[in-house]
Design a protein around this nucleic acid. Structure first.
Lengths: 144, 144
DNA sequence: TTTATTTTGCAACAATGTTGCAAAATTATG
DNA sequence: CATAATTTTGCAACATTGTTGCAAAATAAA
């Protein structure tokens, strides 16, 4: 993962590429994403290392990251919203989230399985598919 | 779909099978599910034909139906929760929702595609799959 | 360093979901 | 069919989650 220094520089670069000011809140939130390899939800951000950020700021920051293609949402069956970092192929105008998500029933973590292909779905006649979301639930590697 | 009378009887039977009292609220909500072939969200129920039901009653009714395996939830990327009727194979203890969902970007409707197979997903080693949720978004038959 | 722009935090609000409890409706029993 | 036991409903009050406007603070540009 690199040193703290390297990560901070990588984050600054990422923000500048997206034409966003490099601020403390944004840096901390991106750090958290990089540290955790799973998906995060809103509440994970408020109790952030040491200091606490305003709820409103967190909402706006996540929305900004979504708009710029830095993060993406993962579908859930409850009212929570989960976010994960996008891979480099994503950009503001072209989203490319073609990977599946795995939710562990034991630890509750949701992770992106980047190497697993999204299957081709044979839809009935008359339907046009633009995007396919797959969420598999079960037991993950670590909980087995 | 049968006459109004037949539908009412079918609903009563369904409720009694699940050991639930046959009440007006429950009947109306199940009628709405049967009339609409798509998935419904909470707000669809409150403005229900003629009369309006208490929000709390609707929440509790939907939760009860979920518990009994009469309806199931459909994953979304926002905070809304969508519900659809289960097929007959579902029961209180064994859920069998192996069908995919289609969300139309034009009309906003979500429907269950019962005939379309859920694909086999090849997970990385160490992962055990219990359930696979697939939501395809695009343009539906009617909106094309 | 100063100015212009962007971001943050607060307050206030809106929407959504939950809990306890008494009244009403439904079901079970004699 | 009438009454008792049980379940469900609706209200009030509250908790949680998400949104908007605006002035102060932080960041970027000159």
């Amino acid at each position: 993962m690199g040193t703290k220094q390297q990560i901070t520089e990588r984050i600054s670069g990422l923000l500048r590429e997206s034409k966003l000011s490099v601020t403390e809140t944004r840096t901390k939130i991106l750090e958290l994403f990089m540290k955790s390899n799973g998906a995060l939800e809103h509440s994970d951000f408020e109790k952030l290392a040491g200091q606490s950020f305003d709820r409103v700021t967190v909402y706006r920051t996540l929305q900004t990251f979504l708009d710029k293609g830095i993060i993406h949402k993962i579908p859930t069956t409850d009212t929570s919203v989960r976010y994960a970092l996008c891979k480099s192929e994503c950009s503001e105008h072209h989203h490319h989230d073609h990977h599946i998500h795995f939710k562990c029933e034991e630890c509750g973590n949701t992770i992106c399985l980047d190497e697993t292909d999204v299957p081709q779905i044979q839809l009935p006649k008359g339907y046009a598919a633009h995007n396919v979301e797959v969420v598999v639930s079960g037991v993950c590697k670590s909980c087995k």
